[in-house]
Design a protein around this nucleic acid. Structure first.
Lengths: 187, 187
DNA sequence: AGGCTATGTCAACGGCTGTAGACATAAAAA
DNA sequence: TTTTTATGTCTACAGCCGTTGACATAGCCT
């Protein structure tokens, strides 16, 4: 391997991690390359050098998160519980990136420069994989309806700060969500 | 009344209308005051003069749309049909501004400068009025869940461009939505 | 030691943004 | 007619943005 390559790859990864954290909390245009550079302790020009453009950096953030998701074999009838738990942030392990990716996607959903990337990422990495787990006709449509509920809940909780939905598992919110998802996924 | 007041109020209204149209299709920071000025055929400084700041302009856009909404007395059991029709854009009358306001709110939901305005507008003009129509305990929570479904559907259709949800009333999408809303609003 | 390459810095550009103050003009009032 | 007021324009200011090319430095290889 080439000299000093390890260090370069390391800072590149740190940039990616910082970008992921930033894009998680602000929309595409509200994240500045200078913010990311400051996080890493590096000049702005370097992030521009490693990832050719801001758009590509965002693309790499999305690409880097689409690996370990749904690879375990989940039975179709377990999907509602699984998806509800994901959205309500059960098991606060720091390596669960499923909800993070959904949040990044939603944050920048209406950013002209990012909307195209966001849409295909959502279709290819979220809708289609889940639809493949689902037997019966019209799988994509049913999954789309289910994710309407899931993204809606996420938007209400995270973006709109709607109080009554913030207490995670209390008041049987999770059970209600599971019930709705079952009806949504049914034919 | 003061001289030339009619003309000033007229251009001010034109600005508001243009701003509404712009905020409907772009998020808060992606709408430029110069765009609005160009729509009206006027200099940038004038929109700055009439509405002191961009933030206040956005505020006035939101305030101007919260009048004719739900003032007709809707029975609680008709709410699911009513809300589903609203989100799916039945009756394409141009004076139906309900969905427009929801779209503006959602577009700028994650814009730092606008998020506060957006959150209170959503709570005071959407959640609370509907909750007042609903008998029984925990009304706000049930309405919040119902609007999770509604905003989720809207996000999927409008922002994410999810194909299977775009054909409005076909495949019984509206019926499915109504069913989900009934379950969401039930105790 | 000397050269070379990977890694990173610095300065700056062009463009866009919201905002502010000085100025112009047309219409109403005196 | 002269004065005043409402309406709108012009210029410009800081500030941020992504992007670019030239330069510095530290470590490896020969």
């Amino acid at each position: 391997m080439s000299p000093r390559a390890k260090c370069a790859a390391s800072t590149r990864d740190t940039m990616l991690a910082s970008a992921r954290r930033r894009f998680l909390e602000e929309s595409y245009e509200n994240v500045g390359l200078r913010d990311i550079a400051r996080d890493v302790g590096v000049d702005v020009a370097l992030v521009g050098r490693y990832f050719g453009s801001k758009e590509n950096l965002f693309h790499q953030v999305l690409r880097g998160m689409r690996c370990d998701w749904l690879d375990s074999d989940i039975r179709a009838e377990d999907l509602p519980e699984f998806l509800a738990a994901m959205v309500l942030r059960k098991e606060e392990a720091e390596d669960r990136e499923d909800l993070d990716r959904l949040l990044i996607i939603l944050r920048s959903a209406s950013s002209p420069k990012a909307s195209e990337l966001v849409r295909t990422a959502f279709r290819e990495d979220v809708i289609e994989p889940v639809a493949r787990l689902l037997p019966g006709p019209d799988a994509e449509r049913r999954v789309a309806i289910a994710f309407s509920i899931l993204t809606g809940t996420t938007v209400m909780r995270t973006f709109m700060g709607v109080g009554p939905l913030l207490d995670c598992c209390q008041h049987g919110l999770e059970q209600k969500l599971i019930g709705l998802l079952k009806e949504a996924l049914s034919a």
